[in-house]
């Protein structure tokens, strides 16, 4: 099993071979993972509770120092590209929330030293609603939102 998996991983690395990727795999014990993963925040339905769990505060200030790039209308609700850029000084972490999802907190990014205020990922959205980005800078929380419409498909002209 491990061998097979390892071989596939190496194949994967070959497809990106031009840039020289080395791939390894291992089975970690679940405990070592779950320790850091903020389970309560991911299970929270309401923002204040979620942010309290995740960032230790729940007062959020709207900020134009955060830009969310996401489509006005999602091309595919299962794959909605979202890019958050922030120039807020001292940004330590960025949370990505799809407010109308059953589990609203989708992702949280801890930025290392020298890491720019920029993350891009693709998220699932079951229905139309706001995508909210919350930035934690020195314990103060800032946010911005972008509405994304999820449609069941129209009829072109």
């Amino acid at each position: 099993m491990m061998n097979r998996k390892r071989r596939m991983l190496l194949q994967g690395s070959l497809t990106a071979g031009a840039i020289g990727v080395a791939v390894g795999a291992g089975l970690l014990t679940p405990g070592s993972v779950l320790a850091a993963w903020p389970e309560k925040a991911f299970k929270a339905k309401e923002m204040p509770e979620m942010l309290q769990e995740l960032m230790g505060a729940n007062v959020v200030e709207a900020s134009d120092g955060i830009n969310i790039k996401a489509p006005d209308i999602a091309e595919n609700g299962a794959v909605v590209p979202v890019t958050v850029t922030t120039d807020i000084a001292g940004a330590q972490s960025i949370a990505l929330i799809a407010v109308n999802n059953p589990a609203p907190l989708v992702a949280s990014y801890d930025l290392g030293e020298g890491t720019e205020g920029f993350v891009s990922t693709r998220i699932k959205m079951g229905k139309s609603g706001d995508v909210v980005a919350v930035v934690n800078a020195g314990g103060k929380l800032y946010s911005a939102k972008k509405e994304v419409k999820v449609t069941i498909g129209g009829c072109g002209g």
Partner: peptide
């Protein structure tokens, strides 16, 4: 990790799309 130093840690739910994509930037 970049040159042995942590540059980004992401925590995800199942709300991230299948075959996840991640992009970020760092200096230095």
């Amino acid at each position: 990790e970049a040159a042995g130093k942590n540059v980004l840690t992401a925590y995800w739910s199942g709300g991230v799309s299948k075959n996840p994509y991640l992009s970020f930037k760092y200096s230095g």
